[in-house]
Simulated scan of single mutants.
Amino acid sequence: MSASNGKGPAPVTAGPECQAQVDPLAQLRTPDDPPWDVYLTGPVFLDIIFTGLDSAPVRGTESWARGMGSSPGGVANMATALARLGLRTSLAAAFGDDHYGEYCWDALEQGEGIDLSTSRKVPGWHSSVTVSMAYEGERTMVSHGHEPPPETLFSLGGAPRARAAVASLTPGGRAPWIAQAAHHGTRIFADVGWDETGAWDLAGLPDLEHCEAFLPNAEEAMRYTGAASARAAAHALTEHVPLAVVTLGAEGAYAVDRRTGETAEVPAIAVEALDPTGAGDVFVAGFVTGTLADWPLADRLAFAGLTAALSVQEFGGSLSAPGWAEIAAWWRRVQSVEGQDPAALRRYAFLERLIPQGEAARPWPRRRAVPTIGFRSA
């Protein structure tokens, strides 16, 4: 099954008021639920994305990009992806008190409906910035920033009550809020970055013991377990965490649930990739959504892969995170294309009961507004 980004019309606005109001947890909600579906914390960056570069910038020359966008980045990529999928999302982060910080705060709170009650604006501290240059399906990034004052990190406090939390594990370190949240019944989903120490020792990820699910990529999984294949690595990881999900790049994803003995593998959707920034965050957000909604393991993998595939067809991190309108447009589009593999269509048939009927007439592909600081569409 495939879908191509292709050439499309000029961007149109697509704020929360334009998004389908889908609550994937509607059938599960009770008056005793925690106030939030997902909590997360981490650094927020202002992302400035240049696109339309024919090649990588060359030293000593000036390159002109045909497109540019700005959006909150860093942990905001994950928070935005979760919120656009209909999860009640709470983010704890430090924001600079400059114009960049004000822009990011407003974009997340007002634009995406993300709760920032546990976040802080830090006087005299400037926002971290990342410049991303997308070309040839890849990107190069340059970042600048400073650690927020230690007292600010302390003032962020513990995690609020939430069904789930997403954590990025740091080799050799602990984040006290993870154990605290798990103790209060929050389900922890974790990913991990590249181990710069080169140790690749699971003992160096002490917070893994509090996690329900661990979602590394294939290279990370094999290095941590010493397994010869990503699938073998997934099985080995279940000795340390109940649910292991390993992303396989162009091959899709593979998951093992130790508690049920269930395994699942879903191939990737072939798309024309414009910019992979934030695709991993979107994958995790899709998987968390399906897990909290109690979908079968294979449906969760398929949904996570679909949301990630849709995200790489647009540029930027939080800019490209799909909502239900984009998911609906894709589903209607692939159903209308002749020659689709019937088995592949059946793999995504679960979407039919989730997509609002009014979304059927939306065009494909849909384009998001590209916000620029100091300028807003009406």
Score class of each variant (00 low, 15 high):
A3T: 11
P9C: 04
G15V: 04
Q21T: 04
D23T: 11
D23S: 14
L25D: 06
L28D: 05
P34D: 12
D37H: 11
Y39F: 15
A56D: 10
P57V: 04
M68H: 10
S71D: 03
G73A: 13
G73K: 01
G74K: 00
N77H: 12
A79V: 09
T80I: 00
A83C: 02
L85R: 12
G86P: 06
L87V: 11
A92Q: 05
A92Y: 02
G96A: 04
G96S: 07
D98N: 02
G101N: 09
G101W: 06
E102G: 15
W105P: 01
A107M: 08
G111Y: 06
G113E: 08
D115C: 13
L116V: 13
L116C: 12
T118P: 07
V122L: 03
T130C: 12
S132K: 01
Y135A: 13
T140V: 02
M141R: 01
G145D: 09
P150A: 15
L153A: 11
S155L: 08
S155D: 15
P160R: 12
L169I: 10
P171N: 11
R174N: 14
W177A: 08
A182P: 00
D191E: 12
D195H: 05
D201M: 01
A203G: 15
L205P: 07
D207K: 13
L208W: 07
H210F: 14
E212G: 10
L215I: 15
A218T: 02
E219L: 12
A221C: 04
A221M: 04
T225D: 10
T225A: 10
G226R: 07
R231I: 05
A234C: 09
A234L: 04
A236F: 07
H240M: 10
P242A: 11
E251C: 00
E251Q: 14
R259K: 10
D275S: 12
V284H: 15
G286Q: 07
G290T: 13
G290R: 05
W295G: 07
L297G: 09
A302W: 07
A309I: 09
A309N: 03
G316K: 06
I327T: 14
A328V: 05
W331P: 02
S336N: 13
G339P: 00
Q340I: 06
A343F: 01
A344N: 09
L345D: 02
A349S: 14
T372P: 01
F375W: 14
F375D: 11
A378Q: 09
